[in-house]
Amino acid sequence: MVSGSRLERLLRQGEFVVCGEMSPPQGADKAPILKKCEYFRGYVDAVNLTDNQTAIVRMSSIMSSVFAIEGGCEPIMQMTCRDRNRLAQQSDLLGAYAAGIRNVLCLTGDYQTFGNQGDAKGVFDLDSVQLIHTVADMNSGRLLSGDELKPPPAFFIGGAANPFAEPLEMRIIRLEKKVAAGAHFIQTQPVFDWPKFEKWMSAVRDAGLDQRVFIIVGVMPVRSVKALLYMRDEVPGMSISEECIKRMESAQDPKEEGVKMCVETMQRLRETPGVRGIHIMPVMWESITPRLVEEAGLLPRPEPLPVEEETTAEPAETS
């Protein structure tokens, strides 16, 4: 046990976890976060709070995570390398831990020209692998500079993986690097292309990585075929199968079909060996989460057992 967070305890107990995701508001009010927490509380085990996703300015992921705790949800704070240098990242991590945040997802971040501040300077002082390494170092009581940290934080560290980008061998090498750098869990892009995902997952299993890290796979409910086409054409690194597009196109009620498709993916993922949880990304459609979790048969969510003092094993040995 590293952090003793709810997410970590459930994963180490061998439960199949469910994560949600919400984007912080574009405004100076915490009420939208508290409202979205209503959709997640009791239905998911932890919620990702995005860090200026697609390079659009929103409330900071750290403060949003604090508000999510207030709203009764366990946050997974996302941290990108686009907006901060190594000094700011480390100081923000210390503050986040002091505020009660236990899970952190380390990302490189979307390039600044994709958002509404295309004229900004991208920092990219560290990359995501180096950030994971930095957080792992901080957990063991050292800053990047080698200076001692007293008391050290204890984060449950996450990384991201894209199962759909090419070349596959390079993706596995990078995933291996993230695990070696100290990642405890991995979250992926949403699955809309099952054959490609299967191929990636079997490569992960062949490399033995599913035994060394908790793999949480993304799913996304879509409301229309337009959303799918947008993702296929405009979002780099996404892969949408023709089958999905045809299915959404021919549907009488695209909203219902989108939910059905998402639930089917969730059930299939539950049966896939090596997958330890799912990560629901309902972009601007958070209210659908309870229905998805219920229809996939993942309710009620389990409660973590109380932590025993001597369980300090590394993920390699327990999973």
């Binding site: 390398c81 990359d127 980008a165 390079m170 993706r171």
Partner: peptide, 30 residues
């Protein structure tokens, strides 16, 4: 690389091996 990735490609490599930021350039990690 626009993001100066030193430890492997970011998740945005296009299917034809192009960069997500500059579609007319190849992904360096590709």
């Amino acid at each position: 690389c626009p993001k100066q990735m030193r430890n492997g490609p970011c998740g945005g490599t296009r299917p034809n091996g192009r960069c997500e930021v500059y579609p007319n350039r190849p992904c360096i990690w590709w």
